[in-house]
């Protein structure tokens, strides 16, 4: 599934979408970036509440398919700018990580 298909299927909001044709492979959930850097895998979706600009750097480093900010948290302004420059997809939702993850699970993501 591509990020674009995911956005349509789960009604996610696109905050920065420079690379929506990217393929998704698996999901990682966490808010400690040190841990995400160590544990998340290439092409994962990443569910978090952190909107700091370092999120973009971590997504780039681990080559994640998209970041999904949950619970209606907001990205910092410079995160959005940077994501557009660097080709990182930033999405958001009002849902909680668990609820969204359950939905992903039903769709076998």
């Amino acid at each position: 599934m591509t990020v674009k298909e995911l956005v349509d299927l789960f009604n996610l909001e696109i905050v920065a979408g420079p690379n929506l044709e990217k393929e998704i492979d698996g999901v990682y959930i966490g808010d400690l970036l040190s841990n995400v850097m160590a544990r998340a895998e290439k092409d994962n979706l990443w569910l978090t509440v952190q909107g700091h600009q370092n999120v973009v750097a971590v997504a780039l480093l681990v080559e994640l398919s998209a970041v999904i900010l949950v619970e209606d948290f907001e990205y910092e302004e410079n995160s959005v700018q940077r994501a557009c420059q660097k080709g990182v997809n930033l999405l958001k939702t009002k849902k909680k990580s668990y609820d969204l993850a359950c939905k992903f699970c039903e769709s076998e993501i």
Partner: peptide, 9 residues
Amino acid sequence: IISQLGFIP
């Protein structure tokens, strides 16, 4: 900073 953000901006 390291635990929360991974590195210093």
